[in-house]
Design a binder for these strands. Sequence first.
DNA 1: TTGCGTGCAAAGGTTTTGCATGGCA
DNA 2: TGCCATGCAAAACCTTTGCACGCAA
Lengths: 137, 137
Amino acid sequence: MKQGYKTRQKEQILQYLISRSGQHITAQEISRHLADAGTPVGTATIYRTLEQLADDGTLRKYTIDSRTSACYEYVPETQGCNRHFHLKCMQCGTLFHVTCEHLNSLESHISEHHGFQIDQSRTVLYGVCEKCRKEKT
Amino acid sequence: MKQGYKTRQKEQILQYLISRSGQHITAQEISRHLADAGTPVGTATIYRTLEQLADDGTLRKYTIDSRTSACYEYVPETQGCNRHFHLKCMQCGTLFHVTCEHLNSLESHISEHHGFQIDQSRTVLYGVCEKCRKEKT
DNA sequence: TTGCGTGCAAAGGTTTTGCATGGCA
DNA sequence: TGCCATGCAAAACCTTTGCACGCAA
């Protein structure tokens, strides 16, 4: 799994992601956080580290929109099957992540009946969230 | 619906998208096409026009990856494209239109249990199609 | 010592913006 | 005529790359 040397930078980046498990973090947030903590890490290093971690499965990478930056999320090893989908409200822009049986069965169904393998990390379901629907009048 | 003036540029951009209905087109492709046709249109104009068209629902905008450009797709008004989902293969780029019970029940489920109303016309499920999966070795 | 890791700066690529000009209505 | 639209160039952004130096093993 883990390859390469163990360095202060990698440790800190991973630690931060872990401390915010289940949340979507951007490279920029990591950069800012580490800088604020008085232990800045170069941008290039952050991206390179994130790429590594995403490659070896420690993190998941998500892309919601081209005008937004990519996000990374720490995936606890114990929750290997912690798959979830993303719902993005087109009105308030909020991104919800939802873990749900139904969604996973959808994936199997599509795979079996339509021969298509969905990549949950790239897929976002667009719509309107409850709050916005109500406010919509 | 349609607001603003009618100009040569808007007409041509829309015409091109229409001529390729159901396909995902990037701003760059449009730019190149129009330039080749001897009627170039400025990049800024293309982006501004696409944004407008996407806003008023004439086009749909899709994003696969932040390092890739965004795609736009023409949506015929008459077409009840609202009753099926789109599956896009990230490898060969093919777009599949799938009508399926499961998908519709998914929509109700999300609506009832998660309070989120999915807009099928805006949603694309990304993944890998059967053909590409096999070729992948 | 070996060679991966790091940081800086520069490069790349897409999309947006400022501003003067052009063209629809 | 009044305004929106267009184009060019520059700016913004996010991400990647080149390169010399640093540091883990």
